[in-house]
């Protein structure tokens, strides 16, 4: 067992790499963000579904929407409360939630999620840019 030193050094390197995310982020823990609503969104009281549902399922909804709109040509969503919505990220969702930085990005950044929706969909459709 002449390789004892090598093994120990190897183990140390392994442990350091393994725990890298922990000490890299040490002391940087951010408080859970609270997304801000625009006046328009506040006035609407409820999104297309309940707040809890939107919180946990909006990505699935958007995934279903983009497939049905593009591939099945169905563009109307009838919510569980019976209201009809145009299934459009730009023209429906982002029309109310026109404050991407305050609304979308806050949680996405916190959760380190980086969806590429806005590579194509314009984030603030009503505002002239």
């Amino acid at each position: 067992m002449n390789d004892k030193n090598k093994i120990v050094i190897g183990l140390i390197i392994f442990v350091v790499i393994l725990t890298f995310p922990f000490w890299y982020n040490m002391g940087k823990a951010a408080p859970v963000p609270e997304p801000k609503l625009t006046d328009k969104a506040k006035a609407a009281k409820e999104c297309i579904e309940s707040k809890e549902f939107m919180k946990s399922e909006h990505m699935q909804i958007l995934d279903v929407w983009r497939d049905t709109v593009v591939r099945d040509t169905d563009r109307i969503y009838v919510s569980s409360s019976g209201k009809e919505f145009d299934m459009s990220l730009s023209n429906t969702c982002l029309d109310c939630h026109s404050n991407k930085e305050e609304f979308c990005d806050k949680c996405h950044d916190y959760a380190s999620a980086d969806p590429y929706c806005w590579d194509c969909h314009v984030d603030n459709p009503k505002e002239k840019k």
């Binding site: 040509t73 169905d74 569980s80």
Partner: peptide
């Protein structure tokens, strides 16, 4: 199935 009703998707 919230509110006891299902959401649905349809054509305009």
């Amino acid at each position: 199935e919230e509110h006891g009703r299902k959401s649905e998707i349809k054509k305009s």
